[in-house]
Simulated assay, not measured.
Amino acid sequence: MDESLIQDMVTGSAPRMFAVVEEDEDETWVAAWGLVLEEHTEVISVDGDLRMSLQEPEGALDIFNAVDNIARLVWV
């Protein structure tokens, strides 16, 4: 297969990536990374202790906003 066709196929099917960014009164940090795939979203915390398979990226906010910090999605 032609290299440019392969590159187009890969680029066209690549998942969107985002970070779950948390902040409190003193600091801001990346808490997790996520990939939006064709039919679902995968999220893994930076420390590797939490993995989620979700229908929508915003579902990660339900988990990360459950603590006292404020979480938001930042698209890469």
Rank of each mutant, 00 (worst) to 15 (best):
A31I: 15
E39C: 03
V76H: 11
A66N: 11
W33D: 09
L61C: 10
P57I: 14
I63E: 08
S53G: 11
S13F: 13
I70C: 05
D68K: 00
I6S: 05
S13Y: 10
L35W: 15
T41A: 02
A31H: 13
T11Y: 10
V20D: 10
D62G: 06
E58K: 13
E22T: 00
L35E: 15
I6M: 03
V43L: 10
L54H: 06
E42N: 09
L50E: 09
T41E: 01
M52S: 01
G48N: 08
L5P: 02
W33L: 09
D24P: 03
W29F: 09
V43R: 02
Q55N: 15
L54I: 01
R72P: 11
L37Q: 10
G12P: 14
F64Y: 15
A19T: 12
S4F: 06
D62V: 08
M1H: 10
V10W: 00
M1K: 04
D68I: 05
V76L: 08
F64E: 06
V76E: 14
A31T: 14
V46A: 10
E3L: 00
D47P: 07
V74N: 06
R51V: 14
A31K: 13
Q55S: 13
D47V: 08
E3H: 04
A14N: 00
L5T: 13
V20A: 07
A32V: 01
L61V: 15
L37V: 02
E42M: 14
T11N: 06
I70L: 07
W75P: 03
R16H: 14
G48H: 07
E22K: 01
W33S: 05
L50Y: 12
I44E: 03
V30W: 03
L54C: 04
G59N: 09
D26H: 13
E25F: 12
V67A: 11
S45F: 04
H40E: 11
V76G: 11
V76W: 09
L35C: 15
W33P: 06
V30T: 03
H40S: 13
L35Q: 15
V21F: 02
D8T: 02
S13W: 10
D24I: 05
N69G: 08
E56M: 10
N69W: 06
S45P: 06
L35H: 15
L50T: 14
D47F: 08
L54E: 04
A66H: 03
F64N: 06
V20R: 03
E22I: 01
G34N: 12
D26C: 08
G34I: 13
G48Y: 02
E22H: 01
A14C: 02
V43H: 07
D8I: 01
V74Q: 13
D62Y: 03
S45E: 02
E22C: 01
P57S: 05
G34P: 12
S45I: 06
I6V: 05
V30C: 04
A31W: 14
D62T: 11
V74I: 11
M17L: 05
E38T: 15
